[in-house]
Write a protein that binds this DNA or RNA. Structure first.
Lengths: 153, 153
DNA sequence: AGGGGGTACATGACACATCATGTACTTTCG
DNA sequence: CGAAAGTACATGATGTGTCATGTACCCCCT
């Protein structure tokens, strides 16, 4: 076995940049969403999943798969969102262990109201400064890294 | 004023990729660090800052600046790290409101023990799959986005 | 039929982040 | 010099994520 192998200087800079960017970007998006819509990014992500399906209903485990969330996290989060009236749970008749997460009218209204401003912020802070080549490069990088995260290692 | 302007399909894919990548990568690194060192990424980041200064001591607000953390977050986190014996607080004589965060021997040992495996994971999951061009592109992208996050908007 | 093992989800405990506020000290400026 | 304003940090409340565990149900196999 050869390595540990530290990072090169170039890699160091890219890595620190990535950490910084994701941290600050996350803060920014969370803050903006919170102020304009009283939603968190987590809320937003859940609502997007539900709103993209006909009827706004999805099995809980499907939402978890799409978002790559732990089941427990989603369960807690749905409980909180339910308290706020954004979603409701409905029991599943074909598999009585299971449950549906269902978008309420208030939930649909919330995401439809939040989406434009959110997208605008994303566009303004990240994509407005990037060339098409950079966008393509970013996609290539993310898919490569994701492939290394998924199955083998 | 023209916009809102939604994202193009290319941008959509890059954006979702970035969200996915950062989410899963964060989980991965946190999990690995936790298991091998009983440290979180947050712990690690704080310890890095302190260990990079002579004496392993830094004013609390300086740590907050470097990490771009909220003051309150850092204060709470230092309290927990202090309980675990990784750092101690010392009062500042030149400005008696202030405090130093100081690395303990245990803290230094913890980070020195954790760093190699952590760096190896980063290298293996992200940089081992990227070409030098991609690394350069990544750095360019992060600095561009960061510049848009900082001062003006 | 009737286990045994896996699946779908909830829950309680605890680590963590954020917000609002409080305390003590420093600086500034009239 | 003295009061107002600002800075450095702590703390409590509350929302959020993770881990361990529990409960109910499904499925498959003998």
């Amino acid at each position: 076995m050869p390595e540990p192998e530290w990072l090169t200087d170039d890699e160091q800079r890219a890595w620190r940049g990535l950490l910084q960017m994701t941290a600050r970007l996350g803060n920014r998006l969370n803050r903006d969403l919170q102020q304009t819509s009283s939603l968190s990014m987590a809320d937003y992500d859940v609502l997007v999943q539900l709103s993209e399906t006909p009827g706004g209903r999805l099995r809980v485990f499907e939402v978890a798969e799409h978002l790559q969330w732990e089941q427990s996290r989603l369960s807690h989060h749905l409980a909180r969102m339910q308290r706020r009236g954004l979603v409701v749970r409905e029991e599943c008749t074909t598999d009585r262990r299971g449950a549906y997460a269902v978008l309420t009218d208030a939930g649909r209204e919330a995401i439809e109201k939040a989406a434009p401003a959110h997208a605008a912020t994303v566009r303004r802070t990240v994509f407005a400064g990037l060339s098409p080549d950079q966008v393509a490069a970013l996609e290539a990088i993310t898919t490569e890294v994701l492939s290394r995260l998924d199955p083998p290692f």
